[in-house]
Design a protein around this nucleic acid. Sequence first.
DNA 1: TATGAATGAGGATTCATTCAT
DNA 2: GATGAATGAATCCTCATTCAT
Lengths: 191, 191, 191, 191
Amino acid sequence: MLRKKNGPPDARTRILDAAEELFADAGYDSTSTAGIAKQAKVPKGLVFHYFPQKIDMLTTLVDERTFVEILPEDAVEAVPGDPAGTLSRLAKRFPLRASPAMRRILFREADTHRSVRDRLSSLNSEVVRRSRKALELALPGERGDVARLEVAAATFATVLLYQENLHQLTGQHVDPDAVADLIGRALGVTS
Amino acid sequence: MLRKKNGPPDARTRILDAAEELFADAGYDSTSTAGIAKQAKVPKGLVFHYFPQKIDMLTTLVDERTFVEILPEDAVEAVPGDPAGTLSRLAKRFPLRASPAMRRILFREADTHRSVRDRLSSLNSEVVRRSRKALELALPGERGDVARLEVAAATFATVLLYQENLHQLTGQHVDPDAVADLIGRALGVTS
Amino acid sequence: MLRKKNGPPDARTRILDAAEELFADAGYDSTSTAGIAKQAKVPKGLVFHYFPQKIDMLTTLVDERTFVEILPEDAVEAVPGDPAGTLSRLAKRFPLRASPAMRRILFREADTHRSVRDRLSSLNSEVVRRSRKALELALPGERGDVARLEVAAATFATVLLYQENLHQLTGQHVDPDAVADLIGRALGVTS
Amino acid sequence: MLRKKNGPPDARTRILDAAEELFADAGYDSTSTAGIAKQAKVPKGLVFHYFPQKIDMLTTLVDERTFVEILPEDAVEAVPGDPAGTLSRLAKRFPLRASPAMRRILFREADTHRSVRDRLSSLNSEVVRRSRKALELALPGERGDVARLEVAAATFATVLLYQENLHQLTGQHVDPDAVADLIGRALGVTS
DNA sequence: TATGAATGAGGATTCATTCAT
DNA sequence: GATGAATGAATCCTCATTCAT
């Protein structure tokens, strides 16, 4: 996993790079191992030296290249009385560390590959949990409806998760800041 | 599309039924035409009689089995002063006529097949347009921020579109009614 | 299975012919499906049309081309008082209908393929059973040792089964007639 | 062959041990060098250090681990007048020194590897030769039929050689002592 | 002697598609 | 319309062997 600071990436890394790009472009099923080898500029056999089954490339990518960051709770920088700003800041600290290509892979392959689905699921849980926590901190004395807060968190998480996918598939943009503002208003505080 | 009232479905219909189920389960690429023929209980050659190329089954399914209903505008039953209820009612009249299997196919294959993506895109546009229209009717005198209304419509549309996908991939439920209520509050009207 | 009386053998038959010859020559593992296709003069894909897995060719060969003939008991033509002649005649009516190539395959692959082993086992049982029956009929009043008769039958069966294999592997010939004579003497009757 | 009295077997020995077991279980062709290396717990490269070609492992096994013992002629302990007992004793001194695994390899691979076949052939010759010699010594004054004695020797050798194989492939046991007794009777001496 | 990355030919199998009947 | 044999390119994967260190 460790790589020299400089110098060209080693064969295993090149294979994963190639797989990431090709899986994202054409989908896992439509990408051939021969194509990966060619793009990575390694002989076909070497692909199987590192990844005995094609599926191992996908699971390795998901394992090594998507990362749900676990931050300390107070990293959210919640500001009491400012749920909208708090959610905005959360969006910027979105805890999924993954390239756009990896995010495409994550959504596309989740449907048919359990390991990918599990990772996506854990990501979603984390985003919802953080949104809820942030809102709780931003609305302190609020005796308010717990269920409403839950819905707000879920709505925000959905928008965060799917905004990129939505843009890719339909061309439509949704601005998380604007949604944060909307939710802030719904929870009774004007930003 | 038309089928005799009684009697077993004809060969073409059985082929499409099989393709729908198998594409939804395993994805387009992983489904073989032989598998479709077997499931449809028709000889392999007949599949190619009706659908000269495999891709024709996918485009035909999307053409014939996903249907964005174009209703008269006033079908929305917008109630001035009740944006939450109006959105709720819109959700129930969700204009996508498609089986759960077709919806899976739509989302999964949109990524790699332009014709599917186009259909999904037009569906999304329609849902956003209707949400916006409904909110405009429900908030008549509102001089209010047009941009905010747009964001509300987009947020609601996103939730509507992805709720099923979200549930499948992450196990999380989002209740459109609760989101409608949230948005109603954000737009300044308490339900 | 039925073939026109004249005309060239059909594709399936040609494939089995080729498999039989190549399996016998080089062994199952060392024979490639491509080689079978070439020898049979059919395209590679057709081999898998008839035999979805390579192993199916072996099991089909064993099923269709080795045949333990079940004759009426009295077909043995046992002559009371002449065990040697009776065994000799049995050897000539040896109930395994299989080409020399199939016999090589049978012995070689039995070691690693259960279905082949089972067939060989059932063949052996039948040969032993017949030898015993023949000896019983040939030695009527014989109060004699049942165990000895059993050993005689087993010995004769072993020689019958392995004589060809023995010749192939070591170059040594054993004449079943001479062994029949030997056993006749052992059972107390001079031929 | 020589090994330190104590301590774990060295790499070369472990490789041969692994090859012996795997060749016996799955056959030479179905055993991969990588599998041998793994079972022997040595790196893949080391296998090729000791055995530049895969086939060298087979020939080395046959060379070093099957051994046709050449005993002094009088080791047979022939007892004049007791051919059955003499053969029985010969069976116990069966001159093939080889593990059951090696014996399986010997029979299975003889069909396709000349060096193995040659070893098996020389073993067979030796067994026949000894059987003949033993019978000659056990039947001294016998002017009797030389051909009959030859058949008796060949029959006994066949049983000795194939009894294990027969048991493995068909489940049937043949007792060499009983066969020795049978042959003794055939040669005119009652035991 | 020891090591495991590297190599590429070859193997079984899949599959969309064609076509004669 | 209906049928299933026929086709061959492409796919995933295996494997003996080499070689730099």
